[in-house]
Amino acid sequence: MHKYANPTQFIRIANAVLPWSTAIAVAAFVIGLPLALVFSPPDYQQGETVRIMYVHVPAAWMSLMVYMVIAGSSAAFLIWRHTVAHLIARASAPLGAMFAAVCLISGMLWGQPMWGTFWVWDARLTSVLILFFIYIGYIALLDAFDDPERGDRAAAILALVGSVNVPIIHFSVEWWSTLHQGTIITMDGLTLSGDMARPLLIMVAGFTAFYVSVVIIRLRAELLAAKIRNARQSLAAAE
């Protein structure tokens, strides 16, 4: 564990990963997009709108995955005092919010032809909406302090509290939406044939690899920002 806690060691590993993740992301989009947009069959019920799924579902998946990364690295930061973990969380948060936003927008655009309205209080979509607001709060808390270290600690605690809360919120919303079910049609009716599952999996892989690449770039920036702060301090001390 502590072997990877050394920032230099860590960035070396990250730099080794970067070309691979970038290659996987590019390959997945090059193969996945034509499959999703052209070669996969239209759904027998939903017709061509089913193609929205190939960006909606990966975005939904990523919004949850990134939250898990943030919660995990927050735990590593608070419990084992890992020296890079809080930077991973910091670098990930805007990406998680972006994925949640993409999921919400594509979900609304899918909802209009499917439900006849841009927004129904579908359990999954509503959960992602709340997750989006948790991201917003998390990012706001990170930057709310003059001392970035204080922001890191506060945000890490929030992330852990949220990791208990996110499943509770999800089940509450699920229960709530079945309670008020009237006109709501869920996406469960969608049966995935192999011709649909394949592009979906490739797009999920592409989104994941894309996240890994971008988070490494952001991590570099965060590590440099920390170095700059240190250098400024020693420069000020020398004067």
Binding site: I130, F133, A144
Partner: peptide, 19 residues
């Protein structure tokens, strides 16, 4: 000790209050 603490606390807590 945060800036805009009272608004921030609302944004942090309201999603958690949903259940």
């Amino acid at each position: 000790g945060a800036r805009r603490g009272s608004v921030l606390v609302a944004v942090l807590l309201l999603p958690l209050y949903v259940p």
